[in-house]
Nucleic acid binder design. Structure first.
Lengths: 342, 342
DNA sequence: GAACAAAATGTAAGCGGTTACGTTTAGCCA
DNA sequence: TGGCTAAACGTAACCGCTTACATTTTGTTC
């Protein structure tokens, strides 16, 4: 099989195409990037050559010469659960509509990994970046400034932060939800939170619960949230631990739906009925919230709208070379069966 | 603010670093790629310069010169549900351990989009690609061959296919599960499948059910699967439609856990008790399977092992320039409460 | 200290595109 | 047909890095 033949195996380059079509590389480039500049006749010849050779332009070379990649990078904390899935999907769809490609990395909630991913995506020529939440070293923002890469933050709203954001007010939302349950008669509140270090969403949701307690005449300091990673098993374990503490909460507020689903399992494990023995709330309103029994009372986050708007804004920042405009989306309470009035 | 000053805003290049450190660009490059080749003294000087300037090498340039990116691309059908999440997470972790970065795109189960993403990732210099399932145009494989990009397929096992794969035998697994329930006394089988076009997993699972029916003396032709997209709402609707047909199945086999979760909701909607009125099975054994009530009898797929092995194999293919070796992993039945013996 | 080998560093040619600028061709009008 | 302008196309520099090869420095031995 080792016949001596010219190396037809190497990927064709623009030179190959130019030779095949009998034109210069500049013309080939024009056919690809700005076809109107080329005669119909030549254009067709070049396109035939491209077709025949199965040529695809090399992005790296293109990027080096043109400084644009039409790529957006997104770094999310996790792909393991669905929290970011729907928003990201909407984000991608909108980008696709506008001619951009999305590249996704996940950081496993580790800031070191996130930083690595950011540098990676930037070095790879991402025209812009979507990040989740505001909590990260100033050094990273400085780096991104130096590299002139526009950044948009989602899932949080905080105008005092370094980057523009499309999100919602985690603190106010959690406060609203908490006040709602307090008004339903709950006084003994407990909380299972995500790990709040380097996670402003988790931190602000805890603060929101305390705000509500203060506003409703309860002692905010009495809240002693358990912090665990966002997954079902940890939520379950946290619930069991909470009960083992001896305090009998009438309601357990969870940092998100995943933890709440875990908490429900925990209650089941302890033969406690939800909501008769204990009420439980979630946050996010992902599909899971309607899958568990009882269905979760939770805070609905407009994931799809957030993703779509983020895409629009980020592309705007890139193409018009302007600063991003932050937007505060509205999250709303969804009342379902996991909470009962006392 | 428009002072006339040298443009300190441009991202620093290797030339800047070289000048700052008083060495040649070659030396800077060596410090980065092969530090042992450089004296400790110079090395430190260069590193200080890198630090001072906040320099990050440009991947595109690097790739052009060196033909390597240490990047792996993965294209999954969807990020919306958790089917691929765990496997992909394990894949990424293993890659990270070996010094590679993972870039993920999702195709929304559309082959045109998938093709676009493949070309994109390749043009971007991915050293290798992970794809899900075997069903795609031969033209794509030809393209990948021409570009010399190693490809590994996961989630399917089929040695007759064009690409090496790390997966499991969807057909045999589904056959095993089906035979199991037939042996529990079920005779009136129905199925809710994912859309089987361009999806070998879905197709093979249907075939597996028929295999089992044939083997157990039932008529395979009597199975008339409903095909719907993999999400809860569609699973629910499919279940309702199935019952509306008038045939009263004793068990509904679902193409995956997501559809099964939907089917349970459908049963609830029709006031049917699972498993007393109808049994339901899933496939995949994702977290969801233990969240729904009743918990799902399903086929456990070794997601993490699959992801990890896929990473090992793909890196091996890249670094040793060899063909990939396929592996058939074992999926196993998990019996839970959603199926009852008749 | 000379001679030589080995280690450290520098020089410069690409990698595969884009694009400013120069040259050729085509189109139009007198 | 000649002359002028605009359109089409070609030439070549450049993007930021790696690396083969050339050169310089360092270390060793006698």
């Amino acid at each position: 099989m080792e016949k001596a033949m010219p190396d037809t195996t190497a990927a064709p380059t623009i030179d190959d195409v130019a030779r095949e079509a009998g034109v210069s590389t500049a013309t080939v480039s024009r056919v690809i990037n700005d076809p109107d500049l080329v005669t119909v006749k030549t254009r067709e010849r070049v396109q035939a050559a491209i077709e025949a050779l199965g040529y695809t332009p090399n992005f790296a070379a293109r990027f080096m010469a043109a400084k644009r990649t039409f790529t957006i990078g997104a770094i999310i904390p996790t792909m393991e659960n669905a929290i970011f899935a729907r928003g990201l999907q909407a984000f991608q769809e909108e980008l696709h509509r506008r001619g951009y490609t999305l590249l996704v990395s996940s950081s496993a909630y580790k800031s070191k990994v996130e930083e690595e991913q950011i540098r990676n995506l930037v070095a790879r020529g991402a025209d812009g970046l979507l990040l989740i939440g505001h909590d990260r070293d100033q050094a990273i923002y400085d780096y991104l400034d130096r590299q002139h890469v526009p950044v948009l933050v989602a899932w949080s709203y905080d105008t005092t932060a370094h980057a523009p954001c499309i999100g919602f007010d985690n603190r106010a939302a959690m406060q609203a939800l908490t006040e709602d349950v307090i008004k339903m008669g709950h006084r003994r509140l407990a909380m299972i939170s995500g790990v709040s270090e380097q996670n402003d969403r988790a931190r602000l949701r805890i603060a929101g619960v305390r705000d509500a307690m203060a506003a409703q005449g309860l002692d905010p300091a009495s809240l002693d949230p358990i912090e665990v990673p966002y997954n079902i098993a940890d939520g379950q374990a946290a619930f069991v631990e909470l009960i083992a503490r001896g305090t009998k909460p009438s309601i357990v507020l969870c940092g998100n739906d995943v933890l709440a689903a875990g908490a429900i399992r925990g209650a089941e494990q302890l033969n406690m009925n939800v909501p008769d023995d204990v009420s439980i709330t979630g946050f996010d309103d992902i599909e899971l919230a309607q899958v568990v029994r009882p269905e979760l009372t939770t805070m609905h986050v407009p994931h799809r709208a957030m993703g779509q708007m983020a895409a629009q804004e980020l592309v705007g920042m890139i193409e018009e070379k302007r600063k991003g405009v932050s937007q505060n989306l509205k999250a709303s309470i969804v009342r379902r069966a996991s909470v009962r009035a006392l």
